[in-house]
């Protein structure tokens, strides 16, 4: 895909499947278009438990936010937030900490417009349209500066986003840039798709994803672990999504690897 130059206004094409809206559909939401649903159906045909994986990631996000609030974090930077419908970070966080502040970042203009509609009038939560590949622009964005105090701990949430950033776009450097810009005691939460459990199906899904604006880049455990360079992984470390601080042992199930996503939370040294 030819990257859009900065000065060229983007076009909004609802005929093009969008990761944010596909994800919404997989979660059972209705914030999606025919093209998104068509793509999701093909993905499900390739790998029937794709919706389960989406649920598992989303549930991890919820548990991670609750964990971080318990750890005292009151600021969240959710990059690749998608359509903020079911289980918003700010809603989850504010159940325990009403003063929690959240900045959502997504590259999808429709997702961002939807987020703006939801967050209109909320001074503690906002959404900006930006690309994770430009961390300096995110960090320097006036809305980010207005809502977050980077001098105090921030939780950077990179849930189901790093696996659409190819190595050529230097995702490790991006994470390091974010890490270096935020205060010690900050956290990083990652959920990352991997082909370790079912390589054949994963490859097929990867092939399919090339039709979207954000093709999948699946990485192995070691490559995912590298994102936590400079962070101390909290217990239980890098695990399958359902295994990370489950609400109950029943939730883990017999095959947590079917979630297809490795997750972890690290604390900045």
């Amino acid at each position: 895909m030819q990257p859009r130059p900065d000065w060229a206004p983007e076009t909004i094409d609802v005929e093009q499947p969008s990761a944010a809206r596909i994800y919404d559909y997989l979660l059972g939401g209705s914030h999606n278009f025919a093209a998104d649903r068509e793509f999701a159906r093909q993905a499900i045909a390739t790998m029937p438990d794709v919706p389960v994986q989406a649920h598992a990631n989303r549930a991890f996000l919820r548990r991670a936010v609750q964990y971080l609030v318990d750890a005292g974090v009151r600021q969240f930077l959710d990059v690749g937030s998608g359509i903020p419908t079911l289980g918003n970070v700010h809603e989850v966080a504010r159940q325990a900490a009403p003063d929690a502040r959240v900045v959502y970042v997504d590259v999808d203009p429709v997702a961002v417009a939807h987020g703006r509609a939801i967050l209109a009038g909320d001074g503690y939560a906002t959404v900006i349209q930006e690309d994770l590949r430009h961390p300096q622009r995110i960090l320097g964005h006036p809305d980010v500066k207005a809502v977050l105090d980077l001098g105090r701990p921030v939780a950077v949430l990179l849930v189901a986003i790093l696996h659409v950033i190819p190595d050529d776009d230097e995702p490790y450097r991006t994470v390091a840039t974010l890490r270096d810009a935020i205060a010690p005691g900050s956290f990083l939460a990652v959920a990352h798709g991997t082909d370790e459990s079912r390589p054949d199906e994963a490859r097929e899904l990867q092939r399919l994803s090339r039709r979207t604006t954000t093709p999948l880049i699946l990485r192995d455990r070691a490559a995912v672990a590298r994102f936590f360079t400079g962070w101390d992984l909290v217990e239980p470390g890098l695990v399958w999504a359902p295994q990370w601080h489950p609400d109950s042992p029943d939730d883990v199930g017999e095959h947590p690897e079917l979630s297809g996503n490795l997750v972890g939370v690290g604390r900045k040294r």
């Binding site: 076009t11 914030h31 939807h114 509609a117």
Partner: peptide
């Protein structure tokens, strides 16, 4: 919920398109 969701996403698409324009 479905109707609301569809309306919301369409509004969002319109808003995004408006903004792009």
């Amino acid at each position: 919920r479905t109707l609301d969701g569809q309306e919301a996403i369409r509004r969002a698409a319109l808003a995004a398109r408006e903004q792009a324009e």
